[in-house]
Design a protein around this nucleic acid. Structure first.
Length: 636
RNA sequence: GCCGGUGUAGCUCAGAGGUAGAGCAGCUGAUUCGUAAUCAGCGGGUCGGAGGUUCAACUCCUCUCACCGGCUCCA
């Protein structure tokens, strides 16, 4: 019997029922090497799946996003096969493709070592050479349960128990069988370029109450070039690592003696932060925020009232004096609430926006700290907005515009996510509904696409998370806009409305850059340490060629510094080449070189970090150039 | 917090049951040299910390701290 297929170019073909997409490919383009899987009527299928129904058929190329995912998933199966062959007694669990590769979690009595990885990789290559066919099987749930029980794979049994379908699919390649939705490559010979990257512990189903499994990470590509580019990208990321650049550029340090996760800013790191803070103050004032300052610690009773002692105690630091317990603040909201409550508020006063560059301390668990990106003491550009429910939309929109302007300044694009009401939530469903709608409508009115994380909100309110993308296309959570229905209730926040009635304001927590430490860490990696002129800790270095220009160089420095340029001098008795090299490695935007020629003409020889030697320039020209490049242009 | 790894000079790293080494940096001197590394000499370490085994520990064992890669967490 023949079935009719419509291909992507609307070409219609007839094939015998039971033939496979691969058969068709061989007929169409001879080999089928470019393709990894097929899609029949919207459903992904294996290239060697017998076709029983007609319809729209398209092919998935190796180098597409979906193709890559299939390739990697198949490679993870290959790895699992190799591991089970090499290490009898290993239980297989799950092995998905990830954003840049794949992993497979194994239950094994010991940890895998780098030597193991090498052995596994070699065995994988042998299995590829054997070109073992990969076959899809379907079984009823019961059969599959029985099958994996007999094979002694408890994790697979657990997984099947949770599947609702009556029939499940399994994939078989030689002696290896795995529960899997598929699709997969038709045989192991289709897998070529892969590399095992590292081992790590991982809990079964990511739950720390469960058993710790051994996870092996790997990656796979259709071509050698793909892998090479990926490895190069990893090297580039390592070169940009803010911890490494932080030391090389003398920005900050951490010290055992001071305490883990506590940042110590050196002069160049500190100036970077001052610049950001100045920008923040200016921009907040411009947008109708009031700057406030709260104390570094507040009495424990206050944190009891706010509920932090109940929900957040493990993350808080405490200190005690004269029988009073104080909590070092992990958040800035309480002082802002006390300011709000310090007098009666009218509906005419709202919205009220309190802003603080608030330094907080959180006892992040060991093992999660990561340089500036995850510190224990950090400063947030934190604001709390108190508004009437009918003002929610405008306030959220204002914050989003603020976020947009700031991200644009640094050249970050970003993704947006809304998290909605979780199962255990505080507050009436109506207010949740209203707030969530305000979040959505604000995003929509600005033309932003967003993702919804159903039920992922905090118990006290829905939120918008902003995830920026840096120069290496990595994603970082920075800004958040968080509705809070809980604290206004706990602290009995009110305003008097037009009819003289007391009403409950809505409270918004929000940060733009988030933690300045973290944001600076991201900026370091984003720019690879080569900050734009307006941010560069040192904007220019004046260097002399011989001692004869020493005083002239000092005079140049003085003049520029007096004009507000962040300028240093390098008057060491070293060759010019060395000074240029070292200052280039320090990523200083401009070098101002003075020899006798420049001294005579009353200027400098200008050298740019990016463009190299720019030739003679007068001081005035240099000044204007640096000033122009230091201007911060921010949207409305 | 959990799994695995690492901790040797300011930095990057080598070494090893008989009490340590390189490059860079630093210091001193020479050189005054025009767009990415001038030359020479010198100093520098209780081998992360505590305890144990041993005639002897930087090396082996236990504990601990910190860091790295993950997991998890991020009311």
């Amino acid at each position: 019997m023949e079935i009719r297929l419509i291909l992507e170019d609307d070409q219609e073909v007839q094939v015998p029922s039971g033939s496979t997409p691969l058969d068709l490919l061989r007929r169409l383009d001879g080999t089928g090497d470019r393709w990894i899987a097929a899609r029949l009527n919207g459903r992904l299928i294996d290239l060697n799946a017998p076709l029983k129904e007609g319809g729209r058929l398209s092919f998935i190329p190796y180098d597409s996003k979906e193709g890559l995912e299939i390739l990697r998933h198949s490679t993870s199966h290959l790895m699992a096969q190799a591991v089970q062959q090499l290490y009898p007694g290993v239980h297989v669990t799950i092995g998905p493709a990830t954003e840049d590769g794949f992993y497979y979690d194994f239950d094994f009595s010991r940890a895998f070592t780098p030597d193991d990885l090498q052995r596994i990789e070699e065995r994988m290559k042998e299995l590829v050479d054997q070109d073992i066919p990969i076959r899809r099987m379907e079984m009823s749930r019961e059969e599959a349960l029985d099958f994996f029980r007999k094979r002694g794979e408890p994790y697979k049994v657990e997984l099947i128990k949770e599947i609702d379908e009556p029939v499940v699919s399994l994939y078989e390649q030689g002696d290896f069988v795995d529960l899997c939705r598929g699709p997969h490559v038709p045989s192991t010979g289709k897998l070529r370029v892969f590399k095992l990257m590292k081992v790590a512990g991982a809990y079964w189903r990511g739950d720390e109450h469960n058993k710790m499994l051994q996870r092996i990470y790997g990656t796979a590509f259709p071509t050698e070039e793909g892998l090479r580019d990926y490895l190069r990208w990893l090297e580039e990321a390592e070169r940009r690592d803010h911890r490494r650049l932080g030391r090389q550029l003398d920005l900050f340090s951490f010290h055992d003696e001071a305490g883990s996760g506590l940042v110590i800013y050196h002069p160049k790191g500190a100036i970077l932060r001052w610049i950001l803070e100045d920008l923040e103050k200016r921009e907040h004032l411009r947008r109708g925020y009031h700057m406030v300052i709260g104390p570094q610690m507040l009495r424990a009773e206050l944190w009891e009232r706010s509920g932090h002692m109940e929900y957040y105690k493990d993350y808080m630091y405490f200190t005690e004096k004269d029988g009073q317990i104080f909590a070092i603040k992990p958040m800035n909201c309480l002082a802002h609430i006390l300011i709000y409550n310090s007098k009666i508020r009218s509906y005419r006063d709202l919205p009220i926006r309190y802003f603080e560059l608030g330094t907080v301390h959180r006892h992040e668990k060991t093992g999660v700290r990561h340089g500036l990106l995850r510190a224990r003491g950090f400063t947030q550009d934190d604001a709390h907005l108190f508004c009437r429910p009918d003002q929610l939309h405008d306030e959220i929109q204002g914050i989003l515009k603020f976020v947009r302007d700031m991200m644009g300044l640094f050249g970050f694009s970003f993704d947006l996510e809304i998290s909605t009401r979780p199962e255990k939530a505080f507050g009436e469903p109506e207010i949740w509904e209203r707030a969530t709608r305000a979040l959505q409508e604000s995003l929509e009115s600005l033309g932003y696409a967003y993702r919804i994380n159903e039920g992922e909100g905090a118990f006290y309110g829905p939120k918008i998370d902003v995830k920026l993308r840096d120069a290496l296309n990595r994603s970082w959570q920075c800004a958040t806009i968080q509705c809070d229905f809980f604290l206004p209730e706990r602290f009995d926040l009110t305003y008097v409305d037009a009819s003289g009635e007391r009403k409950r304001p809505v409270m918004l927590h929000r940060v733009i850059l988030g933690s300045l430490e973290r944001f600076i860490g991201i900026l370091i990696e984003h720019y690879g340490g080569a900050f734009p002129v307006w941010l560069a800790p040192v904007q220019a270095v004046v260097m002399n060629i011989t001692d004869a220009q020493r005083e002239y160089a000092q005079q140049v420095t003085r003049e520029l510094r007096a004009a507000g340029i962040r300028v240093e001098e390098d008057l060491r008795n070293e060759k010019l080449g060395l000074k240029i090299r070292e200052n280039q490695l320090q990523k200083v935007p401009y070098m101002l070189i003075v020899g006798n020629r420049e001294m005579e003409r009353g200027g400098v020889s200008l050298r740019s970090r990016e463009e190299g030697d720019l030739g003679f320039a007068t001081l005035k020209e240099v000044l204007e150039r640096i000033r122009r490049e230091s201007e911060v242009v921010l949207g409305s």
